[in-house]
Design a protein around this nucleic acid. Structure first.
Length: 225
DNA sequence: CACCAGGCAAGTA
DNA sequence: TACTTGCATGGT
């Protein structure tokens, strides 16, 4: 019995794909664009991130050389629409420094490294946590890593598949231990989860009963007044 | 007007 | 170790 979780997750994916269709997420043109997007989207609507990225693109600043040449103030001004622009400018700067130190500022070199080394390195950068690191691994480097976010936690919790206190890696293992390691599949699944979260699985008290996935109980969030 | 968004780090006890 | 707070714009 290839575990009940495996069945649930596959059923979940089929329902979501059938209902929403393919999401075609992260249509970033380059690896660098997706890495920058991964940082800029921290706790931020993707639409705001697009504006920031568009600013960089229009001024031909979306390259390692051009970004490195910008002062922190200039960089912050360009990414202003993405919010938290001062701290995100620093974080992008930290990421650029990491690429320079470890990979000679060569994205090809970066993308050839092992998944384990990349992940460990990315997590050592101030401003890059588990989700940002995994987003870069999945989208930019196309590694079979499942990205966990707040929606994933909320949805699985409300459907009784995890405890409320479950951590990032507990959730990630749930997906990665029970599903085939396919980057395209992980990409689509994560995008569909976010889509479901946005439309149906919001915070209490604006939480509706999910119309798609009704196989489990749906407890409220205890820590949201 | 309030609330939220593909998080993370620093400060506090 | 376990909470709490700062970061900030733009859309509903």
């Amino acid at each position: 019995m290839e575990s009940r979780n495996s069945q649930l997750l596959r059923e979940m994916f089929d329902l979501l794909l059938g209902h929403f269709g393919p999401q075609n997420w992260w249509p970033g043109d380059t690896g660098l664009e997706m890495m920058v997007g991964a940082v800029l989207t921290q706790n931020t609507n993707w639409k705001n991130v697009q504006k920031a990225i568009e600013n960089l693109k229009q001024k031909n600043l979306l390259s390692l050389e051009a970004l490195k040449a910008l002062s922190l103030e200039e960089l912050a001004r360009e990414i202003r629409p993405s919010g938290y622009y001062n701290i995100k400018a620093k974080r992008l700067r930290n990421l650029l420094g990491f690429l320079a130190d470890r990979y000679e500022a060569d994205l090809e070199q970066f993308l050839e490294d092992t998944t384990e080394a990349l992940r460990e390195g990315l997590l050592s950068v101030n401003g890059i946590g588990p989700e940002t690191a995994d987003s870069i691994l999945l989208y930019a480097a196309q590694r079979p890593i499942f990205v966990i976010d707040t929606y994933t936690h909320r949805i699985l919790y409300r459907h009784g598949m995890i405890g409320e206190e479950a951590g990032y890696y507990e959730l990630q293992d749930l997906f990665m231990d029970h599903l085939p390691a396919d980057p395209g599949f992980f990409n689509e699944f994560h995008a569909l989860i976010v889509r479901l979260g946005k439309e149906y699985c919001r915070k209490v008290p604006r939480c509706d009963v999910c119309p798609l996935l009704q196989w489990g109980p749906m407890p409220p969030d205890s820590n949201t007044a």
